[in-house]
Computed example of a mutant assay.
Amino acid sequence: MPVALALLPDFLLILLGQALRRWLHLGDHFWTGLEKLVYFVLFPALLFNALARADLAWTTAAPLVATAAGAMIVGMLLGGLARWLFPPSMLSPVSFASQFQCAFRFNSYIGLAVAAKLHGGAGIAAMGLVTGAMVPLANFAAVGMLARHGGVSLWRELAKNPLVLATLAGLLWNMLGLGLPAPLAQFLGRLAEAAIALGLLAVGAALRLRGAPGGGHGTAAWFLAVKLLAVPLAAIGIARFFGLSGPYFDIALAFAALPTASSAYILAQRMGGDGASVAWLISAGTLAAMLTLPLWLGLVRG
């Protein structure tokens, strides 16, 4: 399958990250530092560079963002059903509130890597626009469900989120029609080149599948099925309703089919939730997405 082969190098980078963590024994401080470098420097540079230089079709970008939002809301609704499908004796309220976010949150690193492989710089710009727009919605839902267990300020989190800030800065630069001086463009380009490879290595290094999630494997299967099957299916229906086609259709589907990001684990830990279960779901979802993501894209691209 052409799509699967195209995405294989990116998935191999994820597996390499896990292997390097096991074999080289670099220590948690190394991988924590790498994650911070990617999150605060490299990926913001990638987003800004792509959005500032992109030729965005705003009449199509609006339906693209609406499609992503609609698919995420479907994930939230289906994820919320777990509260009634699995009794509190099986899935505690704290564990539910923590795992709930795994039904709709997304891994921007994988998303941008897939977008670059599918449509180059234009794909990165479209995926950057979608992820930047969806971060507030994802955080509203996740923080709101966990709010009773901690005191994280949603607005403070959004105001200092480097991906959101880079997205807004890139869009503003684009709308003002400002060009990038050659030295600055080359500087940002060098950072962008490093972003995807190092970001995927960091994703792989964070994989953890020890133990079992809260509520057992039945609840885990529900959240994984919602994120990797139901949400992409919803995205296809919504995208067709809005008449999306070509690269924007691909980006909408790829976004919907992404596994959950490690930020879900960080949020659960900071707010006194069930971090271990979230880590398990993130890891299982990332590995499963190596199969489901190419299948979804291959299905619609022929």
Rank of each mutant, 00 (worst) to 15 (best):
L165F: 06
P259D: 06
P294E: 03
L13I: 05
V94Q: 12
L26N: 01
Q186T: 14
G128M: 06
L46P: 09
A147S: 13
L46M: 13
F40N: 09
M1E: 09
D250N: 10
A169R: 00
A268W: 02
L77A: 15
A261K: 03
V38C: 13
L112Q: 03
A202D: 02
A82R: 00
P181C: 00
S283P: 07
L158R: 03
G237H: 09
A288R: 09
R208L: 07
F48K: 04
L244E: 03
M290S: 13
L91A: 04
I124C: 02
H29F: 12
S95A: 15
I196S: 10
A284D: 04
G111C: 06
G80S: 00
W280F: 15
L91S: 02
G151K: 15
H149K: 07
A159C: 10
A62Y: 13
F40M: 09
P9H: 04
F100D: 00
M90T: 14
H149S: 13
G189H: 11
H29N: 10
E157R: 14
A206L: 03
T286C: 11
A126V: 08
F96R: 08
L78N: 04
Y248A: 05
S108T: 15
V278G: 06
G151S: 13
G199V: 05
M1Y: 09
L85V: 01
V65C: 04
M90Q: 14
G218D: 08
L233V: 08
V135A: 08
L91T: 06
Y109G: 11
R301A: 13
L207S: 02
T292C: 10
G214K: 06
A113H: 07
A82L: 01
L253H: 08
L244D: 07
